[in-house]
Design a protein around this nucleic acid. Structure first.
Lengths: 224, 224
DNA sequence: TTAATATATTGATATATGTCAATATAATAT
DNA sequence: ATATTATATTGACATATATCAATATATTAA
């Protein structure tokens, strides 16, 4: 059954031995979420990593004048580890289910044990953290040094190319949340979507979005 | 001599054995820089980590409409490792000397070897990467969801509390660069410094800056 | 010392973008 | 079907902030 073998689909656990997998199995906890339910909250203590294996979720930053900044969307299978695991033992972003979703919690103690005992696993873990770091620098750069339109185009391309991996794609987040991904008000998001549509670059039909000219969208995204 | 024993002052290397330290010594390269010289550049291939042991430097992001975003300032002793080491083998930020500075280059191959062989070192390395991640999330949050004044106050507090660790402190970066730290134009930086001075919160005397009311500066920084 | 250049400072203006308000449409409940 | 609520859309306006321009001060060169 899928949930029983949750670790099989997560490449993070590929290099583990039978015993190590058994250890994980004995100590994991599965949790199921309804849409919009919070999985963990920024500032709360982090004790477990998560293997996210069903549904969709969003990672977001809270605080300041904005209600939130959406960092990225999550789909199966994703390994999510708190940034505070080696210092303050707190979460530094929040995670919330978008659709019905399931996550498997694994105690950080066990993860640290695996890191020390299994070199391949340690490497995979290091790769994930480094990838998060790269992602964060890119986000930092684009959110501070691009205009709204460029940021929105970037978000649309991210959704089509990386998250939904489809060209007409069905938005599973709201349009205001599309704004939160691009650091702008919901009104600006609506307005700019309309503008892109008027210019024939995209097609918006309710929640179905079609990118008609990805090349041009990339140009706009690049040159702000 | 200081340079010969460069690794002694960097806590990263604390847990290494004599043999491992000898390995580092045989494979390190020391490089000396003049003010404003680039140590490594964003997008360039990364092959070595750096132990920064003399002078001051700045980490900054390039690209977009801004000339740069200064992430943080570096002083001895700091271990600097590229975010691309586990994926694209590129640097994702640039590093530039502020004053005369010295850095010790160590091949990433050797670092990876130490990570696999020495568990304490692996843990220290993981802690550093995680700390960078936390720092990056905080920067992302404050640069996108605070007003200029709050961002400038944050930068001033960072300089006094974390970087210079002094209260009247002598700025070693320019005031335009103070703007680049807070994501604003140099004119805005000048203007707001003047404003803070008029309000009696700081004192600016050339490059000497005194924080007269840190409590209030923190408040402004928090509440934008 | 004087000229020349870079840095600092301030003011006026333009622009990006958010906020508020009005209305329209869609979804849901009664 | 009608009322009710949530979502979407657009317009008018306010404001944060950058840009441009003018001038002042400091620093360096001749």
């Amino acid at each position: 059954m899928y949930i029983e073998n949750w670790h099989c689909s997560n490449l993070v656990f590929k290099g583990l031995t039978k015993d190590e997998l058994a250890l994980l199995d004995q100590n994991k906890v599965d949790v199921h979420y309804q849409p919009d339910e919070i999985i963990f909250k920024q500032e709360s203590p982090c004790s477990h990593v998560i293997s996210f294996y069903e549904g969709q979720a969003m990672e977001y930053l809270e605080g300041g004048k904005n209600d939130k900044i959406i960092l990225r969307l999550i789909k199966p299978v994703e390994f999510i580890s708190g940034a505070g695991f080696y210092s303050d033992m707190k979460h530094h972003f929040s995670l919330k289910a978008i659709t019905r979703a399931s996550a498997c919690f694994i105690d950080m103690g066990i993860i640290k044990e695996l890191i020390s005992k299994n070199h391949a696993f340690a490497n995979t873990f290091l790769k994930i953290v480094h990838d998060n770091l790269i992602f964060s620098y890119q986000k930092l750069s684009s959110l501070t040094s691009k205009y709204q339109l460029g940021r929105l185009c970037e978000a649309l391309l991210y959704l089509s190319n990386d998250f939904y991996e489809a060209n007409p794609f069905e938005l599973t987040i709201s349009k205001p949340d599309l704004g939160a991904m691009s650091n702008m008000s919901k009104e600006s998001a609506y307005r700019l979507l309309h503008e892109l549509e008027k210019d024939g670059l995209i097609l918006v039909n309710g929640n179905l979005i079609t990118l008609l000219n990805s090349k041009r969208l990339e140009e706009i995204s690049r040159n702000s």
